[in-house]
Amino acid sequence: MNALWWLALPVLLLPVWWHRKKREQHQAEPLATSRFLPRTEPRQTREWRWNDLLLLLVRCLLLACAIAWLADPVMPSRGDTVVVAEGTDAAWVEREAARAGLAKAERMTLPAGQALAFLRAHQREWRLDARLLVLGDIPMPFMAPEFGRRIEVRTLARPASTLERHVHIASARPDQWRRVFAGQGVVFDDAPGAKTSLIVWDRPDAPPASLRAPLWLAADPAAFPELKNAPHVQGLHVADSPRGRLWHAASWPPQTADAARTLLEDWQRLHAGPPAYTMPARVFDAASGVRAPEPSGALRGILMALLAGLFVLERILSHARRR
């Protein structure tokens, strides 16, 4: 659809027509008598000056750049490429690239969750004969993307990383809360600090106003006014406050290991979202009629800067022409 803007190139004739129509009339000078002069009708003549030609050229270039910006031109200059998700094992990447015959191809490193979206938006930058191979822990997309060229995806699930989380427990029953986080790789802080990511507040009084943490588990909602009208989702209340995000459940702390595990899983799923699954290896064949869903931006930044410069130059020349 963007390429249809090239049909607007005949608009470049408008500045030429306007400049040809623009005429200047000779200045009339008073004479003592005109009885001996032949009678002639006043006529207009065209008078071109150097800044007229320059202004005409600038205006034509301004319109041409505007049409090119709307048409979103792309120069397909990329060749064979191996797109590697960040954090992928380098030895495995080299083996798979060699198996695909792309050992000497260009390498491009992208975030795993953005690799397919980037290729779909920028697919016009590759030549028609270029081969594309995507390697790494690519998450399963919500919907299978469609490409205008053939793209092969080979995946390798990364081992689950164990993050060290610091938790501070402010409660008269700390042992019960410690059992909730058993086997979760949690480090318990005696006092909240810069590394503390979660504070368990199991006290009837409100915490100090200066105490901050990204997450709070509040056993008593009376200590947090923000929880009074908090939405209720799967047995949990959630609210944002200046101290951090607040979570509350009426059954805290859980009395059994199964209840603690279920409650903790529900809380983590609601807070962090569902885990990403690695998509299986597959080949996306070229689909007919598929185009980039958004401007690629390959030349749009340059054209926009050129448009701004030409506009400023056109205004300067127009002002100088009137003087």
Rank of each mutant, 00 (worst) to 15 (best):
E152F: 09
R99N: 12
H168A: 06
P10N: 04
R59F: 11
Y277Q: 14
S197H: 01
V16N: 02
V167E: 01
L198M: 12
W252E: 01
D202M: 00
A85G: 13
D72S: 07
R46C: 06
P159N: 04
A218I: 15
F188D: 00
D258G: 12
Q123T: 02
F142L: 10
D205L: 02
W50R: 11
R300K: 12
V167W: 08
L156N: 02
R243V: 01
W177Y: 04
W247G: 03
P253E: 06
Q255K: 13
T162S: 15
L102N: 04
F181P: 00
P76A: 03
H19K: 14
K22R: 15
S34F: 07
V312H: 05
I169R: 00
G273W: 04
A222K: 15
W126I: 04
A115S: 15
E24Y: 09
A160Y: 00
A121C: 03
R212M: 11
L303E: 09
R20H: 11
P204K: 01
I302R: 09
E24K: 07
S161L: 13
L227I: 07
A239K: 05
A160V: 00
V84I: 14
R127Y: 06
R43P: 01
R23P: 00
L246M: 08
I67N: 07
W69D: 11
E226G: 05
L54M: 07
R261S: 13
K195S: 06
Q27P: 06
I138R: 05
A223R: 04
R149H: 08
V58N: 05
A8P: 13
W48S: 02
P10L: 09
A28S: 07
R39K: 11
P207W: 06
V16D: 03
T262V: 10
M75E: 14
W5N: 06
R154E: 03
A260H: 05
S318N: 06
P295E: 02
L56H: 01
R20Q: 10
D258A: 15
W201G: 00
L56P: 00
E94Y: 06
Q268F: 05
S251Q: 13
L63K: 02
P274G: 14
L9Y: 05
P76E: 03
A144K: 10
V233D: 14
P295M: 02
T88H: 09
P242F: 04
G185F: 14
L56G: 01
R154A: 07
W48Y: 08
V186M: 05
R243E: 01
Y277K: 14
A308G: 06
V233E: 12
A298L: 09
M304A: 14
P30F: 02
R322F: 11
P293Q: 05
W267Q: 04
L9N: 03
T262M: 08
D240H: 11
H26Y: 10
R243W: 01
F147H: 06
G113V: 09
R323W: 12
A213Y: 10
R173S: 10
A64Q: 03
S296W: 08
G289C: 03
A97E: 01
P145Q: 03
A249I: 04
P76H: 03
A222C: 10
A206H: 05
G183V: 10
